[in-house]
């Protein structure tokens, strides 16, 4: 597993604790006092490190190979889920999953990008870089939701839409644009959560919702910091500086008025405790759907339009 710089001291402590535990088990020695001491140290260190995360650390956390993915959250949050497949135009894109879910009394359509856990699955899911058929499957499910009056939940986690020749040939731009258009047309409640990487057009294609939330260590960006650094300084290795400049963290998004809520992650980030993260995610989502249930179909449509109408910062000279 990849160990990130800022996580290194924590991981060292964690392996020390692990070793001590093993030692006490094998040799029958009581090392519980030492273990407890190290646990306290670990906790203190986590707090210290996570209190001072830079934007670039968040980028690394959002891309962390152990971070829970869409299907993990669906499994942990939903009472039931049946996955549906295909765009009915010849393809089924594994980079986007979707289906019918039961969540705390709600019947929902859930759609999200899905990363792979091991190399084989990563390749199969194209690193969650969806092709046109992925967005077209999403649109099909959105329309299904509209027809049967099911609220829509989207979980966003993608580095970008697939930029390859094949995707270009099948109209990746049009698919992204039309996915947004379709989401604007809905008259059912819609909630989007950026759970990991909110990578530019590929992300916003699924994030045109009545409420948009972000997990604490998720990012949302118009361009990857590496690409940004390559353009400004002709040096992709200056990505950490670009991450500062782009203001791509959940707190930034909230301050800029682009999202409605930041969902806290457990100390040490989602991958240290997926269960607790899923519980927080679940209650935040239920709260949003509960609040949105007060709106009529027409109001939901208008509310979504007004929400995005306001976005942007500019001056008006007299």
């Amino acid at each position: 597993m990849t160990i990130f710089d800022f996580e290194k001291p924590i991981n060292e402590l964690e392996s020390a604790i692990q070793e001590l535990r093993q030692l006490s088990a094998e040799k029958g020695l009581d090392r519980s006092r030492e273990i407890a001491e190290l646990e306290t140290q670990r906790e203190r260190l986590l707090k210290q490190i996570f209190a001072h995360l830079r934007p670039w650390d968040k980028v690394l956390l959002a891309r962390h190979p152990k971070r829970p993915y869409t299907m993990d959250y669906i499994r942990l949050m939903c009472e039931q889920f049946v996955e549906l497949h295909g765009d009915r135009l010849g393809f089924d894109d594994p980079a986007i999953v979707g289906g019918l879910a039961k969540l705390g009394g709600y019947k929902l359509v859930v759609v999200g990008q899905q990363k792979g856990r091991d190399l084989k699955e990563r390749q199969k899911r194209n690193f969650a870089m969806a092709k046109p058929e992925g967005y077209r499957k999403a649109m099909r499910l959105f329309q299904l939701a509209e027809k049967f009056r099911l609220p829509v939940l989207t979980l966003v986690d993608t580095p970008a839409a697939d930029p390859g020749v094949e995707s270009e040939s099948r109209g990746i731009s049009e698919a992204i644009a039309r996915s947004m258009l379709t989401m604007f047309q809905l008259t059912v409640p819609t909630v989007a959560v950026v759970i990991g990487e909110g990578g530019s057009g590929g992300a916003i294609a699924l994030a045109v919702a009545n409420r948009v939330l972000m997990l604490e260590h998720a990012i949302y960006s118009v361009i990857p910091p590496e690409g940004c650094a390559a353009i400004i300084w002709r040096d992709a290795s200056r990505a950490p500086e670009a991450a500062d400049a782009l203001q791509l963290t959940a707190d930034d998004a909230l301050r800029l008025g682009l999202i409605d809520m930041v969902i806290s992650e457990p100390l040490g980030a989602a991958h240290r405790d997926p269960q607790t993260t899923a519980l927080s995610l679940r209650s935040a989502i239920l709260q949003q759907f509960h609040e949105l249930s007060a709106l009529t179909p027409e109001q939901l449509y208008q509310h979504r339009h007004e929400r995005f109408r306001r976005m942007g910062t500019f001056l008006s000279t007299p």
Binding site: M180, C228, L258, H305, M311
Partner: peptide, 23 residues
């Protein structure tokens, strides 16, 4: 494409202009 210098705000213009088409 989108204007990098306005970060996420530029990204949101994709949705905003799409809302215009819808109207």
């Amino acid at each position: 494409g989108a204007r990098m210098q306005e970060g996420m705000l530029s990204l949101m213009q994709m949705a905003k202009t799409t809302a215009g088409v819808e109207k």
